[in-house]
Nucleic acid binder design. Structure first.
Lengths: 227, 227
DNA sequence: AGTTGACTGGAACATCGTTCCATTCTATTG
DNA sequence: CAATAGAATGGAACGATGTTCCAGTCAACT
């Protein structure tokens, strides 16, 4: 009802830059990438497309549907780039890294992936990981739990990254942000937080991406012990 | 500036049910538990406390601070209940389950934990997990990555649970919701989603809590391979 | 008694998502 | 070819939200 119903006859475009669900989603992605989640308002979108809000709501039901569609589009693009011929273990790492990098570029994807799982984007990830686990020889009884563990871990890092990206508006002061958190950690009460204090030094100059991959390897190692 | 500055002299309460940061946070938790995240509006909170919004903003800076404080309160309570004498492995499982159960009862905690990490609540979790990993004999070089993996996994499940709780308003139709997702999964194209299709049957009647714990064990097993 | 300042309550503001509707334009019909 | 139906548009308007502002209140101190 909210989508365009093209009856049977050919239909020429009303104007050269006619609105369409695809154009709206593309514009939404642009705005989200440029200014983050808060920047995507219906008014900003309408201005960006030189139209009114009513026109947008004719093509899209919700703002939620818009965010979901934008997320699906980004994740589908990432998943399409995974080479299917690679060895299972490498493929899983590639999928995980693909999602990680996608969220690094589009932090809002992390938040959305988190807000509404059970959607096409998540399905792609589960299928991609789960299929490779089967190829790895994980016994059937452990496949569900194993895939769930990997996906939930990816999801957890996704959210963390999205939150971090929200904390430091551009991306230049990322190291400054990390240093600030590290300083806070280092200043904690040694009696109450001995571990966190010890980690403060490592936190300052650790590589998110490498640590993420280390976690994936850790889980894969754990899965292999079940075999 | 936004918090009450109590100079040096003693100060008797203005009225028996005087407002205070603690009372406001407690009321916020009540509203959140009763109606979910959307139910917590400043107006609803003011009505619940029989006051105006201005009075609330005198004690609390933001709605964000309110949510963060409520989350910290819930998590701190959970962490306080962990028996410190247990064996490290059991203690980690207890911490994980504590967080899981807390989010099961207060789904909004999951969303908030996700939205703003690097807060007291998260510190408690990291410290609690990390300290036990040290006790487990995890080599120092692997401690940071290992703790990060466990915490991110917990975080991922937390968000998932919160999202699920948002999908089915009460808690009775949880099985109906799972059945619905399972049906969707079963109806997928077998060529494109063979793995997800196979998991559909298990999804219908799996135990979230048991699966969560299985994931924790999986990661712990992986961590032990590094030792 | 008067003054100070912590504290309150509610009106008011800006912004958001969403709905509604008069209007435009194209493709079809008579 | 004129008329009509309906897809598509643009913007005004509505209700709700977070937040700010401010005139007032009350208790403790001078």
């Amino acid at each position: 009802m909210a989508t365009r119903t093209r009856t049977k006859t050919h239909r020429t475009e009303r104007r050269t830059d006619a609105l369409s669900r695809e154009r709206i989603i593309a514009a939404a992605i642009e705005i989200l990438d440029a200014g983050g989640e808060n920047a995507l308002t219906v008014r900003a979108l309408a201005a960006h497309l030189a139209t009114g809000s009513g026109a947008i709501y004719w093509h899209v039901a919700d703002k939620g549907e818009l965010l979901a569609a934008a997320t699906d589009a980004v994740i589908a693009r990432v998943m399409g780039e995974i080479v299917s011929g690679a060895k299972p273990r490498e493929a899983i790492r590639a999928v995980a890294l693909g999602v990680f990098d996608a969220i690094d570029v589009h932090p809002w994807v992390g938040a959305q992936l988190f807000r509404e799982p059970w959607r096409p984007a998540m399905l792609e990830i589960i299928e991609s990981v789960g299929g490779r686990l089967q190829a790895l020889g994980v016994p059937e009884a452990a496949q569900f739990d194993s895939a769930s563990a990997v996906v939930h871990y990816i999801l957890g890092v996704a959210g963390q990254n999205a939150a971090n990206a929200r904390s430091h508006t551009p991306d230049t002061d990322r190291s400054a942000f990390l240093a600030s958190v590290a300083a806070q950690w280092a200043a904690l009460d040694p009696a109450r937080y001995p571990f966190v204090r010890q980690m403060a030094a490592q936190l300052r100059d650790h590589d998110d991406r490498a640590q993420f991959l280390a976690g994936v390897d850790l889980i894969l190692a754990g899965i292999e012990t079940v075999r």
